[in-house]
Design a protein around this nucleic acid. Structure first.
Lengths: 155, 155
DNA sequence: TGACATAAAGTGTTTAAACACTTATAGTGA
DNA sequence: TCACTATAAGTGTTTAAACACTTTATGTCA
């Protein structure tokens, strides 16, 4: 029973269950990592979600992706992808084009500007992740990744 | 190299580093857990953060806590604790009282209504966590909790 | 073929997050 | 003692999250 999280939150009572402690640990860790990432991205005019969109669209290449598919691939669920993409279109990072064959679809693509931006951020972001989690070492990181994958798959 | 997360996000490229994969895994897992918790809490008129506040103030007992201390103990950083507490005061879950000796402080306490609500939620929330993470088993949960604690402590 | 279901995207609106700035109170030292 | 600093809380305002609802286009099958 490491008292780590209880100290951080100045919690007086023990956790009700290991599951509860794990859920809180995950939330806490994610919040710290995301806050740091958000602060780091701010000077570049991006939120973590927008950065996520740029990476998704870079991966999709020239074919682009429809709105729903962008939404599905986001790490964090976003209930209003339309206006998220609106903002990114206004800042020139992405472009959109109504489908010709099936006019229900709107293909979203990354622009040159968006591509240059996300490319430029690759290395420093990897470095950021390194400073955040590098002290764990490869073995621990692998264990952690596998446990989280297992956690997301309710038996 | 378990391809778990890459599949989930339909990602074509491998991760740049184990650290990057871990960061994304943490974010993804936390997002899923929090979304489920938010959905579960909604019928009770609470957000995850508000539920967190109730638990903090229950732990503080009759002495209560000042605004900043509530903010410090939150699992997730909130930049506007004042209005968060405003809303909870309006719904009668907490009460506030300007300090007598030092009038800068405002003591926040949980009300009877808030206490009854959070007490009633204890068991079902533990059950929810159980369904979310119970399949991991005690050994894995302990490993996960310890790794996350280590992750939050940059060497 | 045309009523109905399905799917994709978008809109209206409420609520909360985020951030910079301000007010109020208390300590401190020249 | 009074200017200065520090600390706690609150306010103004912009932006985004969240949710229900609507619009448009395509499939389907009696």
């Amino acid at each position: 029973m490491s008292p780590g999280l209880r100290d951080e939150l100045k919690q007086t009572k023990p956790f009700e269950s290991p599951e509860a402690e794990a859920a809180l640990s995950i939330a806490r860790t994610a919040a710290e990592l995301e806050h740091a990432l958000a602060q780091w991205l701010k000077p570049h005019g991006l939120t973590p979600t927008q950065y996520n969109v740029l990476r998704i669209l870079r991966g999709a290449g020239a074919a682009g992706l429809c709105r729903n598919e962008v939404g599905n691939r986001l790490v964090t669920r976003v209930p209003d992808v339309t206006r998220l993409l609106d903002r990114m279109e206004q800042t020139g990072l992405i472009s959109r084009q109504r489908g010709a064959d099936d006019r229900r679809f709107v293909t979203t693509r990354i622009t040159r500007k968006g591509l240059e931006l996300v490319d430029a951020l690759d290395r420093p972001i990897v470095a950021l992740h390194g400073t955040q989690l590098g002290h764990l070492g490869k073995r621990d990181l692998r264990t952690l990744i596998d446990l989280l994958a297992k956690a997301r798959r309710p038996a």
